[in-house]
């Protein structure tokens, strides 16, 4: 019982999630700064920012709906933390886990776009309304490629549960006999759809996080700060924190589904139980940082696309790409299976 409570509230629960969220936010800012040849913010910067924002006065503009503007950021943060509880951090199993949880997570991610829309609408400002529209359009467009690529991984691993997908990644594709020989001769071909699908997933994650090149909902030079222009004080702190937690969520999701999460892969160590967890956590961290680096690398080296360009890129480029990936997986499954 106590262990469960510790799990939920401390590790790998809420405290750990918030730490990782702040850490990843700092990481992205630091990597971006160093690539731009700058020093960048200090390690504790996100804590200071949040501390200050939480204490600031809240101002609601004329004619706006204060209750929605106050409530929605909280929902965003709550949902973000809920998603984070599914992420496998030290063992293939997260705190919460059930059959079909992958699709539950996809549903929760789309809530972010809906809440963003309501905030923008309630603010009654042309910038926020425009930003809200863009947020929803981006959300809808990226949801399908992301869902298809995750579903293809589900087909590959024959599972709809994150913990199983993490555990079976590679193993189901490389079925071995008892002597250790690989049965399926086509297994190495799985790397082709895998590469396509991870690229689609990473770009979709960038879209969900509203980073460049898909940062139109937050385009500072066009619509000030998008849908969150009118938020102040604690409300702004909540959305910012939700963004940070989502940064952790999506990187961890890609780590778990495409890179095997905390699994150590080919290294076979016969260790007693707590040590497998420590090694698993370290492996998770390494993979997580790699994904974070790729995210910030793409973010820093691309300009911001226009909203119509984002939509056409996602629908006519990434969606077909993810479908091709899925088709390849299905073909391989049929031939090899």
């Amino acid at each position: 019982m106590i262990i469960e409570i510790v799990k939920i509230f401390v590790f790998p629960g809420i405290a750990f999630i918030l730490f990782m969220a702040f850490f990843s936010s700092w990481m992205v800012r630091k990597i971006v700064a160093r690539m731009e040849n700058r020093v960048g913010p200090p390690f504790l910067q996100p804590y200071y920012d949040m501390g200050k924002l939480l204490a600031k006065q809240r101002v609601y503009p004329h004619e706006s709906i204060a209750s929605i503007m106050h409530l929605m950021p909280m929902i965003q943060l709550g949902v973000a933390i809920l998603i984070a509880l599914f992420m496998p951090v030290y063992s293939p199993k997260g705190i919460l886990s059930f059959d079909g949880d992958v699709y539950f997570i996809l549903f929760l991610i789309s809530i972010h776009g809906a809440t963003a829309y309501f905030v923008g609408w309630a603010s009654r400002n042309p910038y926020t309304i425009s930003g809200a529209g863009r947020a929803v359009m981006t959300e809808i467009s990226l949801e399908i490629p992301l869902a298809v690529s995750i579903a293809s991984m589900g087909i590959m691993t024959k599972s709809i549960r994150i913990s199983e997908m993490t555990e079976k990644l590679g193993i189901s594709m490389f079925p071995r006999t008892e002597t250790g020989e690989i049965v399926n001769k086509l297994t190495w071909l799985y790397l082709i759809p895998w590469t396509i699908l991870i690229i689609v997933a990473i770009y979709s994650a960038i879209g969900a996080l509203e980073l460049s090149p898909f940062s139109a909902p937050h385009a500072e030079t066009e619509i000030v700060h998008g849908w969150s222009t009118e938020l102040t004080g604690a409300d702004l702190a909540m959305t910012e924190m939700a963004d940070m937690v989502n940064l952790f969520n999506l990187s961890a999701l890609i780590t778990a589904i495409f890179l095997g999460g905390p699994r150590t892969g080919l290294i076979i160590l016969n260790l007693i139980e707590p040590w497998t967890y420590v090694i698993g956590f370290l492996f998770f961290l390494m993979k997580f940082l790699l994904v974070m680096f790729i995210l910030s690398y793409i973010y820093v080296l691309s300009g911001r696309l226009r909203i119509d360009q984002i939509i056409s890129a996602l629908w006519s480029y990434f969606l077909p790409l993810s479908l091709i990936g899925m088709l390849l997986v299905l073909i391989l499954e049929t031939i090899g299976g």
């Binding site: 971006v32 690539m35 731009e36 040849n37 700058r38 460049s212 090149p213 940062s215 385009a219 030079t221 820093v300 080296l301 691309s302 300009g303 911001r304």
Partner: peptide, 16 residues
């Protein structure tokens, strides 16, 4: 212009 296009990397490099 790069900053307006969301390409902050180029903004920093050019201003450097």
């Amino acid at each position: 212009l790069a900053h307006d296009g969301g390409y902050d990397y180029m903004f920093h490099i050019t201003w450097r």
